[in-house]
Design a protein around this nucleic acid. Structure first.
Lengths: 193, 193
DNA sequence: TCAAAACATTAAACTAGTTTAATAAAGCAA
DNA sequence: TTGCTTTATTAAACTAGTTTAATGTTTTGA
C-alpha cells in the first residue's frame, strides 16, 4: 500500500528502511469518490496527504464565485492546505477529487510525533516545502510575464499526461482565464498546425 | 549588530540565548550601496541573507527584457534565491539594493553546519519556508482573481511604509502591470476621494 | 435508457490593460 | 549649477482577455 510513498520519500532524503516503514505506518489509507471533498473552505485541515491513485484539485472560490485552482495533484503528489494544517486556522481552500481516488493521510499529531522522534523527517518536509515553493515562484513569474497562450502551451508540454485528464474548465481555472478564451486559444493553436 | 536577527529568530522558534548567539555568529555583515547587486542572473547564490537596513528587490528579467518583481525585502526580511542556493544551480534572479543597505549573510557551508549541529535550525527554516510559501500562495490566488486596481489598493494597505519607498515603476513590476496603467489607476483612485 | 446537467465551441460586444509617444518634473553626477 | 537620466503623467490607438448568449455534444445519475 505504501510502496509509492516509500519511493517518494527516498527521492527526497536518504532514510533507512525501518525508519521509512515506521514513518509510512503513521499514514491512514482512504478512498475518496469522484466529486467528494477532502477539505472544504472553513474547515481546519487535519491532514497532510499523499495521492496513490486518482486526481485532485486544490482551489479557492473568490467573493464573486469564481474558482482559482492553486494546483492539481495526481499519483505521487502531496496535498494539503499547509496554512490551515500548520496554524490550525480555518481553510480558505477546497480539495476535491476529480476522479475516484485513494490517498494516504497523516494527522497533525502523528506528524508532530515524527518531527520529534525522527530528525530526518523534519528535513524531508523542509526539502519538499522548498521544492514546492520554488515551483510556485516560477509559476508566479510566468503568470506575471507570459500570455495565457504561452502559459497554456507550456502547461500542456510540462504535464501532457495530466492535461488529458482535465476538462477545459479546470485548465482555464488553473491558468487564470475563462474557458471561452481557452477555447479560442486551442482553436488558434490547432489552425497553426 | 545581530539584535534584529535574534528577535526575528525568536519570533519563529524558541531557542536558548547561547544557541541563538552561536547561530548569529555564523553571519557576515555586509554593506551594499544603492543600485548594486547581491546576486545577478547566472551566478550561483552563495548566501542566505537577512536585511538589517535598507531595501532590496528580487526580480527576474524575461526574454523580452521585462522585469518581474518576485518580492521586496526591507529591514527584518530574509533574502535569497532559495532554488539557486539549495541546488547550487545558476540563478535566474537578480537581487538589487534600491537603497543603501546592510545585510547579514550566511554561507551554505555554515548553514549546513547549523543544520547538522543545531536541530532547531532545521525547524526554523522549515517554519520560515512554510510561511513564505503560504504568503506566495495567497499572492498567486490574488493575481489569478483580482484586478490590478484592487491588487494595488491591497498592496498599499498591507505595506503602507514600503510603498512610500518605492517608485511606481517598481510597484508596477510587482503587480504585473505597466507603470502607465498604474498611473491611470492612481488617478482614478485620487478622483474617487 | 432517458432526461438533466455539464461541457466545448463559436460569435459579437465589451473592458482591462498595453504600447508608443510626448511633456513636465525630480534626482543625480560632474 | 548645469545638463543628463530617470520618473510620473496623459492621450490615443491597440490587443488580450471577458461577458453573455446560443448551439450542439458528452456525461451522468436515477
Amino acid at each position: 500500500m505504501t510502496e509509492l510513498l516509500q519511493k517518494n520519500i527516498a527521492a527526497h532524503i536518504s532514510l533507512s528502511n525501518p525508519e521509512t516503514e515506521a514513518f509510512c505506518n503513521l499514514f491512514q489509507h482512504e478512498i475518496i469518490k469522484k466529486r467528494s471533498f477532502l477539505l472544504r473552505e472553513g474547515e481546519v485541515c487535519k491532514f497532510e496527504g499523499f495521492v496513490i491513485k486518482g486526481l485532485f484539485r486544490v482551489y479557492h472560490i473568490d467573493k464573486d464565485g469564481f474558482e482559482q485552482i492553486l494546483y492539481f495533484a495526481i499519483e505521487n503528489w502531496w496535498i494539503t492546505d499547509i496554512d490551515s494544517f500548520t496554524n490550525e486556522t480555518p481553510s480558505q481552500l477546497f480539495i476535491e477529487a476529480l476522479e475516484d481516488s485513494e490517498v494516504l493521510l497523516i494527522s497533525k499529531k502523528d506528524k508532530e510525533f515524527a518531527y520529534s522522534n525522527m530528525p530526518e523527517i523534519e528535513k524531508l518536509f523542509r526539502v519538499m516545502t522548498q521544492k514546492t515553493h520554488v515551483a510556485l515562484q516560477r509559476r508566479m513569474i510566468d503568470n506575471l510575464s507570459k500570455t495565457a497562450e504561452s502559459r497554456y502551451i507550456e502547461f500542456s508540454e510540462k504535464y501532457p499526461q495530466l492535461i488529458q485528464r482535465l476538462s477545459n474548465i479546470q485548465v482555464a481555472a488553473y491558468l487564470g482565464i475563462t474557458n471561452v478564451f481557452l477555447s479560442n486559444i486551442r482553436k488558434k493553436i490547432a489552425l497553426k498546425k
